[in-house]
Amino acid sequence: MIRIVDVTKSFGENKALSGVSLDIFDGELFVLIGPDGAGKSTLFRILVTLLLPDKGHVLIKGLDVVKDFWKIRTIMGYMPGTFSLYPDLTVEENLAFYARIFGTSLQKNYPLIRDVYEQIEPFKKRAAGKLSGGMKQKLALSCALIHRPEVLVLDEPTTGVDAASRKEFWQMLKNIQQEGITVIVSTAYMDEASRGDRACFLHKGKLLKAGTPEEIRESYPYPLYACRSKDNFALLKVLRNEPSTASAMLYGKTIHYSPARKNFSVGTFLSDLEKTGKYGSIEYRKTTPSVEDSFAFLSKQ
């Protein structure tokens, strides 16, 4: 288990993490969600022993990240946000290099990385700098896996990657998880929250919520309706100004609208609005909150 207890970290005036506590279980695929600057990389760097927490402590499988960092470094695989490949070395050379500095070889752990590596193997003589984004990502993942780590930490591996390739990447992570490796991934894409076993949301250095995707969705405290009308903008404005409204936000072609009171009669309220004739007919239906709805609500608190 990875136990993060009350971790605080500042860079000068800037508080990157404040009082973050979190447990990640062995063998879990855990997603750390947060916008840029939320503190995701800082938390990861503390996990992989690159940074020291100002306050609090972190135990990885019973090992302390401050005291036992040499041991931790042998059981961790880490893929920084920058991919950390040598652009002038070939695919093969990059991989062989990472294998050797971890005191292992490509042959020894090939079964583990085969799934990922097979996709880039046809280009093994190509310099890593000349690979496409998706291939770099796969090579970096292979490099981080080559020593069969017990815990794999991936810092925003899917940033800038298209939706289909992201989906494939998550499938690869699931396969790695099957090998008994704990996988921790950060992302800024809200839709990836439901790809793991559990997720947590980091906002301005604070941990807002951790749980399974269902738990996160269920944490949305209000009923949620998807409304649409001829003039969504006008409707949005009027909904927002209504004191009974908890939240009203555009969501694609609809407005996600939540009244603050549970027993509020949405039907009456909207048909009254419809009667003013300003918005044309207003369609509405009850909908289940998305993970993003929950996180949006939490980050406004």
């Binding site: 022993t49 920084p80 991919f83 950390s84």
Partner: peptide, 13 residues
């Protein structure tokens, strides 16, 4: 700059 130092540091080197 390329971030590879980060990977070197977390390695047992």
């Amino acid at each position: 700059e390329t971030g590879t130092m980060e990977a070197m540091l977390v390695s047992p080197l």
